[in-house]
Nucleic acid binder design. Sequence first.
DNA 1: ACCTGAACACCGTTCAAGT
DNA 2: ACCTGAACACCGTTCAAGT
Lengths: 224, 224
Amino acid sequence: MTPLTRPHIVAAGLRLLEREGVDGLSMRKLADELGKAPAAVYRHVSDKRELMSLLFNEVSRRIVLPDAGDDPRTAIAEAVQSAHRVLEKHGWIATEMLNGGLLGATSMRLSEFILDSLVRDGLSDAQAARLHVAIWEYLVGHLVAARATAPGLSPHPMAGTDEDYPTVCRVAPLVAEMSDQERFSAGLMVLLDGAFAEPRASHGGTAACEEPSSVSRSAAGAVE
Amino acid sequence: MTPLTRPHIVAAGLRLLEREGVDGLSMRKLADELGKAPAAVYRHVSDKRELMSLLFNEVSRRIVLPDAGDDPRTAIAEAVQSAHRVLEKHGWIATEMLNGGLLGATSMRLSEFILDSLVRDGLSDAQAARLHVAIWEYLVGHLVAARATAPGLSPHPMAGTDEDYPTVCRVAPLVAEMSDQERFSAGLMVLLDGAFAEPRASHGGTAACEEPSSVSRSAAGAVE
DNA sequence: ACCTGAACACCGTTCAAGT
DNA sequence: ACCTGAACACCGTTCAAGT
């Protein structure tokens, strides 16, 4: 009836994703959801890959960046944690992250924010670049790992773990007790601890240990 | 002719993966490679998911752990870098990491090694658990991100980046100059810097900054 | 036991043809 | 311009039947 538009397609895609999960989203079902023939979608979207990219962009638009002016360490922590909260709700993002193109448009906002904060704080371009990549990769890895460990997807029951891997067995319950948020924040804090312990390119003094290590806890607490 | 065995299947799977990539590996093509009907494979392997799990295990067997006795920071760096080198060669591992089960059997060796090293060094179980998860997630994230950024998969050419994201544009070339190994090591070192700057549960003194920060470089150099 | 043939219920994508 | 019908070249998985 009414002609198809990209916004319609994106909305229907997200609806389908929410209702049936990643495996429930096919070009055919999408067309069905829109009341059209499968081929009709291809007039407006060149590819399934492009479709997923549009969906990712729509979701990542909801990442909120804190006001500039905060201490850069806290600001970065808040921004990345916001990204985590937004993306974590959509399991399919981890799945589609591998197809490339997802790292495109909207996530640039986050990248710019992180890099800018780091450079403002006195890191060299090279240091900032390295750290930014590390943070991004950690976020991606956490999303993927959380997905792989998700209930119902637990790895095959493994034999003889107790004798062969005593430390793993002793420590594993501790990890299970932590919420996903806690796990993510803990790792992010270690990463930021490492980054902000590095010597600055040009700042106050030589200052390798300029902040007490309790900052890691307070920065985490500010967001929770 | 000769009856099928799981080792035969695994070997054929890896052959196919190497020759044609992830998309070239289907149950049907695998059966073809083995000279059997598609259904024959299901006598020996219950699932495609189980097949992928077997393949992952075969590959991750090649991860080499350093001799115990080294300084734990260096030991962990070497072990994780070995894992990186082994897994990085197989792009399909990132793709299949999401299906769960992959984190099962063989990768336990690496986990046990990391956790044991950390606990021996004086970290509490809880600290070790958190850090181990962070390291693992960083490794996964790097593999996935490297895959997504791989040549030929570059994100859609984005419009107007230069004005909207000046820092990203200035810094991006610096990242492109780094090899994959360098990128990975840089992030890993930041992570370990953060971890080993944390206060120990029970060790020598209070010792928050017990090592000079140049260690981050030397640990990386020891492996290259 | 081990395997085959044939089918079921799907995919993404294309393309001539319709309005 | 926008859409449909029908097809092409695939998937993973199952199951009765063969040897």
